[in-house]
Design a protein around this nucleic acid. Sequence first.
DNA 1: CTTAGAACGTTGCATGCGCATCTACATAGC
DNA 2: GCTATGTAGATGCGCATGCAACGTTCTAAG
Lengths: 162, 162
Amino acid sequence: MTVTASESRDAIGPGEISSEELVVWRMLQRAQVRITRLLETDLLVEHDLALASYDVLSQLSEAPERRLRMNDLAERVLLSRSGLTRLIDRLQRDGLVQREACASDARGLFAVLTDAGALRLAEATPTYLRGIRTRFLDVLDADELRQCAAMLTKLFPDAAEH
Amino acid sequence: MTVTASESRDAIGPGEISSEELVVWRMLQRAQVRITRLLETDLLVEHDLALASYDVLSQLSEAPERRLRMNDLAERVLLSRSGLTRLIDRLQRDGLVQREACASDARGLFAVLTDAGALRLAEATPTYLRGIRTRFLDVLDADELRQCAAMLTKLFPDAAEH
DNA sequence: CTTAGAACGTTGCATGCGCATCTACATAGC
DNA sequence: GCTATGTAGATGCGCATGCAACGTTCTAAG
């Protein structure tokens, strides 16, 4: 079952995938995990803020009236509804976010960014941007960045939203 | 820290990052998370195998004598040592892997792929390859794949190993 | 109006992970 | 040889997450 790249362009299994292609996928996985971890530890060390928390604050700060419905927010930060419930619990406990009822739908709640949350976000943002720049953007030139964007758009046509 | 100014006309913060660049990063995050989740649920549904478990089996199958030191394996699958200890516990309980002492270093252990593990891997591999192909490889053409590989190599020069 | 079904958010539960710590062994310095 | 430091792997613990189930509220069919 060892994947020996004997046949150059040949299929190595039912998937018709060359070993070079597989390597690209593995590299992508490794790169993404490693960059994300570096970013997260930066935020944790310098601002005691998890990456998921940063994402929530960031999304809220860009939303109209600094508020989003729980469901909507969960989708944007790629969390399950229950996961977001707990995360908002923590952020609310820390005073960075608060819940507000929704007038038009009694089932719904808004997560609203507080002033303290906006401040915390502003403090952490330089760290976040620096991390992305040094680990990702600086390494690629303008052409590569365009190519990257094009590929990502093909991979997930709706990924550009938000 | 190297400031290789990406020459962005509309720098938006202390990090000198344009909003387009930030969007690329967000898209990358979203794409990676979503592809990984789809892949994982495929494996879980069809073979009751987590992605991390698949990675372990896969790495072992490619290693000489189907065995790797715990430490080495942990690095390859991007897991902490304790995380790998528990994962190998589970795989061993399921008979897919077993631990063997290391002759040259009494502290060390090998994780060894069993025949049952190799079989399970063989069963799951078509699902895995199909997922990567349909969600990733099929979407990109040969040029894009080369560009992708080039970028990843720049991002992590050592990411190509294994 | 009534009722069935869907949607929103929360909760119980199980899981999987990382950090700090521990023990056993290895290696360098004396 | 003997001690000090480092390394391999396991363990206690806490935390974050997802799934399934629940109550509440909205919506559509009759």
